[in-house]
Design a protein around this nucleic acid. Structure first.
Lengths: 215, 215
DNA sequence: AATTATTCTGAACAGTGTTTAGTATCTCCC
DNA sequence: GGGAGATACTAAACACTGTTCAGAATAATT
């Protein structure tokens, strides 16, 4: 039965090759430019072959979705767990934003597009990667409470608001809204700065805001 | 010269008809299903005719972008300006979220898609609608400070963080992430609720959070 | 070597945004 | 009223997209 095993291995290899090609095209040319035909050309197979390994494009996107989430968790793993819970919370936010900054397309894929999440609910699949990431945030918030922060504030709601504010900041950036505001808010307010300065400035306010919630 | 005027009027009418048809299809069938051919069919003209009135699809999207923003401002106009600045801030957040809830496609168009904003920067156009909306938030935050809120917090940064958290909440909802978390966060935490309850709960935490920032 | 099973592909379908060459209509001037 | 010219419109094509399916090429089994 050595033959069957070899074939099985080859099939799995090809399946991975498709994903690797998709990921490469995706990060190189962006999501819009990543077509089935382009993936097929990269692995030197016909477009129809891809459909023998993946049901449709959504299944490929979903696989990339999981990959992207592992990359995010990798960013989180660099955080020093020796420091205080509050410092860890700030570091978590920073790592999150840096991830969004370094991999804007991956970020959009895993947090803004509705197709991958639709695929999860459609196939009644679990999504442990996402749960784990939120759980990390939630537990950090809980530990912050032990340090005297966020008294009288409910942890789940607060965790979501922290996530939302970071997510909102990241998406406003990638959509170009923040860039517009950076140039035009000089008229509205009296500050004039570029996008990244504005982003840093806002994150600074975020920290200051959380710090004020001690006791 | 009555003829030339009549023709000019007719041209402008047709231009508006295209937009009306686009808006209708857009709200009825969503953005994905709104093709140039579908718009053409609705106004009973050939697809090529549309290109005599709009440079490309982005120009149509940009026009809808402006329309959508006026709709948002309309939602804001229902707010009672007699109440305190802090109450107005909360009402602003509520109106913003309700807008996103009632018109999810319009919300995605004006706040999540990057094409319309790209078009603004490409054509070096102004975007007064957006500036006005942010300015409204900014001024409300400033007035809240006079009422004793947000001491030692910088207004621009805080305005952006408030916007971000609301925007983040809205996009996490439309993308389906919140829906997933609502069902799976029972395992992570100990709460079990549906999407809308979770959304309300989070907004409640948001208010509680802001209230704690008095003095 | 012939049969069967597996793997792959060319071609097509129905859709997308967009361009161009050509037609039909309508206005103007003689 | 009839011919010239401007204007408005469209059929058809181009280059794409995701996806399907009949059939060809290859590999394994008898």
């Amino acid at each position: 039965m050595g033959v069957a095993e070899r074939k099985e291995r080859h099939k799995e290899d090809l399946k991975k090759d498709i994903l690797t090609a998709a990921k490469q095209l995706f990060t190189e040319k962006g999501f819009e430019a990543t077509s089935i035909r382009a993936i097929a050309e990269k692995i030197e197979y016909s477009p129809a072959t891809i459909y023998l390994y993946y049901k449709d494009k959504n299944e490929i996107v979903h696989a990339l979705h999981q990959d992207g989430f592992n990359l995010l968790m990798q960013h989180f793993s660099t955080i020093d767990f020796g420091q205080s819970a509050f410092s860890r919370l700030i570091a978590l936010g920073k790592a999150y934003m840096q991830f969004a900054f370094e991999h804007p397309d991956v970020y959009t894929l895993i947090f803004s597009m509705k197709e991958p999440m639709q695929h999860v609910t459609d196939c009644e699949k679990e999504w442990h990667e996402g749960d784990r990431a939120f759980s990390l945030l939630y537990r950090t918030v809980e530990e912050c409470k032990k340090e005297g922060y966020f008294k009288d504030l409910e942890s789940v709601g607060l965790s979501f608001m922290i996530w939302s504010s970071m997510h909102g900041l990241c998406t406003l950036r990638t959509s170009g809204h923040l860039e517009h505001m950076a140039t035009s808010c000089a008229e509205v307010t009296d500050l004039n700065m570029d996008v990244n300065t504005l982003l840093d400035h806002n994150f600074g306010t975020f920290i200051a805001l959380l710090e004020k919630l001690k006791n």
